[in-house]
Design a protein around this nucleic acid. Structure first.
Lengths: 260, 260
DNA sequence: CGTTGAATTGACACCGTTCAACGACAGTGG
DNA sequence: CCACTGTCGTTGAACGGTGTCAATTCAACG
């Protein structure tokens, strides 16, 4: 399934995979794929798009990771992370600029199309419009979860949740193994995503390692018991599941009671 | 202008006001208004919609305030706040459930329509689809700003930013005066929005009051120098402005350098 | 083998939480 | 009118999480 997608749709094969991709008709899917014809590579740390500057393309992340970053001269906040399959500049659709920078976390492969062309396609192809709406809603849900993560949890639990989320998203696009996954991320990066400092992040990760919950070493995240990690981070994956899963049933919530 | 809107469109008159409302054609605007035919009132603290339960309506907040709340038994996080003119359950469009509770902050007036009917209207009326997209994008941008607020600022600056944001949003829909605005909010509420405790929020507000930056007393927010408040909260309103403003020019950023 | 960026550790100050108690105020019912 | 009551706001003190500065170790790479 994943393999098939990747062959038929080298650029867009992972877009919404596991979250509504299958609702795209054949024709719209082809037109969508054709749109992202130009590919680009960027190296680690390179800027992909700058905030508050005219942005007239649509960009799909094919391989690698990117972060949404907001800098104010002395500090950097990372407000989101993109994994393969994500359209990373969705929020420029209809707005013409981004309110944050997009930066490659490691080496990345991008597929780029014309922003206006995508907007046009969405108007003529109902399935595409629907897919974009779903993607946008998922992005909002993710952002809300990051807000919760920062508002409610202490540093160690924040990382636990961050890693759980990443793991889950990589699973959806077929890029995680049981027991571990890879991502070229530094402790400074994780700190910026969790609203803390690199030094404190180091101690938090040390705690998690000593507890046997998770180990992060040179781009490899390893956890013997994934469920335990998710529980520690108070993570529930429901919000990632997309419309059809949510439509299907109302799963009774797992309600954890967690000391911050 | 505002008055006119409110007369012609009692339910939807404030929707996207100042952020693209004028791009709605006459006919779609009328159809949109007709959709929100049922009105409802709720008292302070009452639940408007519950998370993870089937949600088949579209709800527009006409008067009053509501919060997006996530509870886990012992703690409550408020991940967003709704002001008049907001469609408060946008994230149920295409998903059929919300991932958070909606709770009235004070007494509210709601205008309700059928979710499916709105989805249909969006498919037939391009302007409506466009407006919903804009609204959704604005919501995402707001959520990103909340993430930044929590990740980067200390408690006192968080409230300052929160109040600045509210003031700005109320301005857009014509509900703020120079020097002050009203909102029925407790210190506990503000604490839950800022990821801190009511006690610490009390001290933070005390500091802000002593600094002469802002005073919050019994639902009335007063600030002699609004710019100073915004600067203290490191607040820039660009992200609220909507598509046309962003399209127009790239304003050089105000870059503040702030000690957390 | 020296260089570089990342990870690690210790000491100390500060922000924020927690528990406890008290004060201010509005609404209610006698 | 006043006592009662509940909610909200306010304050103090002890404790723990986090930020900051400085120094050291480690791994990768030319």
């Amino acid at each position: 399934m994943t393999i098939l997608n990747q062959t038929l749709y080298p650029a867009t094969g992972r877009f919404l995979l596991g979250r509504g991709r299958e609702l795209l008709g054949r024709e719209p899917a082809d037109a969508f794929e054709d749109l992202f014809s130009r590919t680009q590579r960027r190296g680690a740390g390179e800027m992909i798009a700058r905030r508050n500057t005219p942005h007239n393309q649509a960009t799909l992340l094919v391989e690698g990771f990117a972060v949404r970053s907001v800098t104010d001269g002395r500090s950097r906040s990372i407000v989101g992370i993109c994994v393969p399959g994500d359209i990373i500049d969705l929020s420029a659709l209809g707005f013409a600029t981004l309110d944050h920078d997009l930066v490659a976390l490691g080496p990345v492969l991008l597929a780029c199309g014309d922003r206006a062309a995508l907007e046009n396609l969405a108007e003529s192809e109902r399935d595409v419009a629907q897919a974009l709406w779903t993607a946008s809603q998922l992005e909002t849900a993710l952002q809300r979860q990051w807000t919760i993560k920062l508002g409610r949890l202490k540093a160690a639990r924040r990382v636990a949740r961050l890693l759980s989320e990443l793991w889950c998203r990589l699973d959806l696009v077929g890029l995680a193994e049981p027991g571990r996954f890879a991502i070229p991320i530094t402790q400074q990066d994780m700190a910026d995503m969790c609203g803390t400092t690199a030094i404190h992040m180091n101690r938090a990760l040390g705690d998690l390692r000593r507890e046997g919950l998770v180990e992060v070493r040179r781009g490899l995240v390893t956890a013997p018991d994934r469920t335990a990690l998710e529980r520690y981070g108070d993570f529930t994956p429901a919000y990632l599941s997309g419309p059809q899963a949510l439509r299907r049933t109302v799963t009774p919530e797992r309600e954890y009671h967690i000391m911050m």
